[in-house]
Structure formats: C-alpha cells, structure tokens
Amino acid sequence: MTQTNPTHSSTGVDSRQLFRPDVDLLDSEHEVTIIADLPGVTGEDIRVDYRDGRLSLQAPVAERSTETDQLRHRESLRGDFYREFRISDVIEPGAIEAEYRDGVLTLHLPKTASRRPRQIEVQVSSN
C-alpha cells in the first residue's frame, strides 16, 4: 500500500487548505487497518471514497468558534483533512468498513479470501 500526494489529487476538492491526518497502518492476517486522527470533525462529514485502486478520505474540520468569540491563541488547523492511499488488489473494496469515535476514524479493509494466508490441510493416507 502506498500513499499519493494530496496536492495532486483530482477529486474535486475545493480550495480549502488540506492537511494530512496522522495515521497508523496495520497489516494483519485478515485485513489492513487504517487509523486516522481526525479531531474536531463531525462524523457525518467524513467522506471515504474508493475508486480505481485509490482510497481517499476527506473530512472538514468543523468551525467551533461563534461570532461572539474572540480568538486569543490558535494552533489548530483550519481546513480539511485529506489523505489518499493506493490500495493493492489484496483488498476487497466492497467490504471496506469505517467507524468514527472520539475523533478517530478506523477503516477496516478486509483482504480477499484468496489472498489470505492459509494453512493447507495435509491429507494423510494410511495404507
């Protein structure tokens, strides 16, 4: 699995600034797991798209300040989280699942059954 540069995406992202979220990528027997930190995002706003072997995730950071708020100090990012991943054919695209909790998006990318490592049972003939 490789990553592509967000700035060269052609997915119709608007001019808001894009930021790469921190991710963990885990490879296990049955799936590849992508865990992305998306603090300040509303779950319903997260977009995960798969097309032509590319998985993209986009999530706008919700504006939390109101009109009466005066900004005194800011370190947080203003814009959208965006990141793309190139998915190899190990993954079953139709079975990708996503969950968002406590500012963390977890994507489960199950491997196709034929690509999972498996132990072949040895038939022992005893005659």
Binding site: D37, L38, P39, G40, R64, S65, T66, T68, D69, Q70, L71, R72, H73, R74, E75, S76, L77, D102, G103, V104
Partner: peptide
C-alpha cells in the same frame, strides 16, 4: 496537541485536540 483559546462574554474557552482519548 494543538491548543486554541477563545474569549467571549462568559469567559474563556480552551480547546485541545486529543483524538482517541476518553
């Protein structure tokens, strides 16, 4: 983690990004 400070009539609001923590 990123930290923001806002001020309003009620006082101050400090926001810290702590993804994954309860």
């Amino acid at each position: 983690p990123a930290l923001d400070i806002f001020e309003n009539a009620d006082g101050y609001r400090v926001e810290v990004a702590v993804p994954g923590l309860s």
